[in-house]
């Protein structure tokens, strides 16, 4: 069964791009959220296998949202979407329980490599 993904980003361009990459690779994008508060809520409703999380967003940033999500569901797998120069926030998010991170600009193969690894679909290698 296709793994279910929630995409969180305040930029629709980034959401569309991630959606395209993930759908083409056979994942099921079950929902999108454009800010941290919505992300926590959607995660609770949808229980996705994986969530991609932007860092800088209105209302609640991605680091805090990750912390809330992992606190509510220890099995939650959150992949942080960062940009160069955001190393400090990424470290914070990893300490808050994020499973992995990506660095923009995205290349499809990098996104998929991280997603597969986090979902344990690429154990060989």
């Amino acid at each position: 069964m296709a793994k279910r993904v929630l995409i969180v980003d305040d930029a629709s361009f980034m959401r569309n791009m991630l959606r395209e990459i993930l759908v083409q690779a056979g994942y099921l994008v079950v929902g999108e959220a454009s800010h941290g508060v919505e992300a926590v809520q959607r995660h609770r409703e949808l229980k996705p296998d994986l969530t991609t999380m932007d860092i800088v967003m209105p209302y609640r940033n991605g680091v805090d949202a990750t912390r809330d999500i992992v606190r509510a569901d220890a099995q939650a797998r959150v992949v942080i979407c960062s940009a160069l120069g955001q190393e400090a926030q990424v470290l914070e998010a990893l300490e808050a329980g994020a499973a992995d991170f990506l660095v923009k600009p995205f290349r499809a193969e990098d996104v998929l490599s991280v997603v597969r690894k986090v979902l344990g679909e690429d154990v060989a290698g």
């Binding site: 190393e87 990424v90 990893l94 991170f101 660095v103």
Partner: peptide, 9 residues
């Protein structure tokens, strides 16, 4: 892109 962060992980 971020080897330091990757190593931290």
């Amino acid at each position: 892109a971020s080897p330091g962060v990757r190593a931290f992980l």
